[in-house]
């Protein structure tokens, strides 16, 4: 797919649980769309969004698709800048080393820098 304009830096801030609403899935779909158009993408998990990274999800039991499995395929879509806010992880007793996918744990200050360096920011 050809890109007509120079790519934009787009930061997605995902702050919702994976199965409690459609927001986490919507965020992933937006990330995949932006990736298809070869934009420069940052994906940031904050607050309850870090629950998307919980290991060993088996959402078949609630007839849902495994969101963490889809997240694990993001490098294939050239989405490699994936972050999780350390404070949000520790507040939920999540160990950055034992998540479903590899993410860079980062501070709120680092997220502030990502926002400043972005053309567009989506939060959902």
């Amino acid at each position: 797919m050809s890109t007509l304009q120079s790519p934009k830096t787009i930061t997605f801030i995902s702050r919702s649980t994976p199965y409690g609403s459609g927001r986490a899935k919507a965020c992933l779909d937006m990330v995949l769309s932006a990736a298809a158009f070869e934009q420069k993408i940052n994906l940031v998990f904050m607050d309850d969004g870090v629950w998307q990274l919980q290991a060993a999800q088996k959402p078949k039991s609630i007839d849902a698709k495994d969101l963490s499995a889809a997240l694990s395929a993001l490098p294939l879509f050239d989405v490699n800048n994936i972050f999780a806010e350390s404070k949000s992880l520790s507040a939920r007793d999540l160990d950055p080393a034992s998540l479903a996918i590899g993410v860079k744990a980062c501070s709120a200050e680092a997220i502030a820098v990502l926002i400043r360096e972005s053309d567009v920011v989506y939060q959902l």
Binding site: M1, A36, K65, D66, A69, A70, A73, L76, F77
Partner: peptide, 15 residues
């Protein structure tokens, strides 16, 4: 089956 995703062209080539 693993990811629930249908890859577009670029990811398909990589896959």
């Amino acid at each position: 089956q693993r990811t629930g995703l249908s890859p577009a062209m670029r990811p398909l080539v990589k896959l």
